[in-house]
Simulated scan of single mutants.
Amino acid sequence: MSETLRVAVIGAGRWAQRAHIPGWQRDPRVDVVALADTDPDVLAQAGRDFQVARLVTDYRELLDDPDIDVIDVATANHAHFDISAAALDAGKHVLCEKPVHHDYRQTRALSERAQAKGLKTKLGFTFRYAPAVQYAKSLIDAGFVGEPYIFNGYEQNSQWIDPGTPMRQVDPDADPSVITTSSIEGYGAPIIDMMHWFSGGELRSVVGTMRNFVPERMIRATGQMQRLNIDDGDMWIGEFDNGVLASIQSSYVTVGNFPGIEARIYGSEGAIIVRLVEEFGVCQTIRTATKDEVEFVEREIPQEFFPTGGHSREDWDFLFYSNLCADFATEILSGGPANQGDFGQGALVQETINAFERSFRTRAWVDLPLNAPAADGAVAA
């Protein structure tokens, strides 16, 4: 591999244009050499805006190209697994938006396939790479909180509090009488990732519930209101093997701004609150307290946790994804074993979501790891 990482982005829509493509292009070690999208108009516009010359409507044309090192999967969720599997089989490192698959076992299988081939993977856990979160983790590792006791995690914003805001219909054949996962999987995954990362132990048992607060919503494809029995709010409790108690709250009908993440960890020596909410021009803050000085005070985030020239008044998606892309580039180009937020971590987060769903269905505590058999491709619930 050369000293320049050559990346092809599959899926050139809104999120790719706000985060993936500019995040990669911010790094001087990276060259975005190709874009793929099934919509030729979207593809052409992205190519013009980001000055990428190679544009294809079939991503398979890119897999056998020896000049491409990384496939970045930024498509709709249903295509994540197949494209990631094909890219790994073609010998490419893979960045994929979450989830790779709704069944954690399928994601774990891809993680094992990548490791067997000596390839690196990474999930789109955007908020893990926020400078404030990276700084918080460094404080935890340095012993600032002491023995961790409690983790509280929130992912909440008001994106769909208005039923007239168009939403993509996840499954047109879904039984409207059965609530299906939505917020906890699409929005809860990043804070679940942080819960595991900050808590420092193995999750052993969970219990919780889901709710559908806004029954009828506007469907983007039809422009009509329709009954969607989806999880738009949920709350969970988890027990870790090191004694940590954790809670998770996820919703996109809670009043507040993007991205709506807040992580709190309390321990024997101190506490940390990280808030990733774009308010008054600032996209992140970190506050700390100790057992001797219990009033929380805001800390300045050291520049080492930002990309070159970065600051907290940038758009959060561009800032955080720049760090994600730079971290993946460093992991690949260094050739070392480091690979944070990989498909293995993605499988753990998905297993937690599958356990949450099972708890809701059974109205009972659910133990991890999950081992119950299920049909191929089915959610273990």
Rank of each mutant, 00 (worst) to 15 (best):
E216M: 10
R217A: 00
R217P: 04
M218W: 01
I219E: 00
Q224P: 08
Q226L: 11
L228V: 08
L228M: 15
D232S: 05
G233E: 10
M235A: 14
W236G: 05
F240S: 14
I248M: 10
S250M: 03
Y252K: 07
V253H: 03
N257A: 14
G260N: 13
G260C: 04
A263T: 13
R264M: 15
A271K: 11
V277D: 00
V277F: 04
G281V: 03
Q284V: 07
I286A: 05
I286C: 02
T290D: 09
V294Y: 06
E295L: 01
E295Y: 14
V297S: 10
E298Q: 13
R299M: 00
R299N: 14
I301Q: 06
E304W: 10
F306M: 06
T308S: 14
G310S: 12
S312N: 07
R313N: 11
E314F: 04
D315F: 01
D317L: 06
D317W: 09
L319K: 02
S322V: 06
S322M: 11
N323Y: 08
L324Y: 06
A326N: 08
D327V: 07
F328E: 07
F328D: 05
A329C: 10
T330Q: 13
L333W: 04
S334Q: 15
G336M: 06
G336N: 02
P337F: 10
N339G: 10
N339S: 12
Q340L: 08
Q340M: 11
G341W: 00
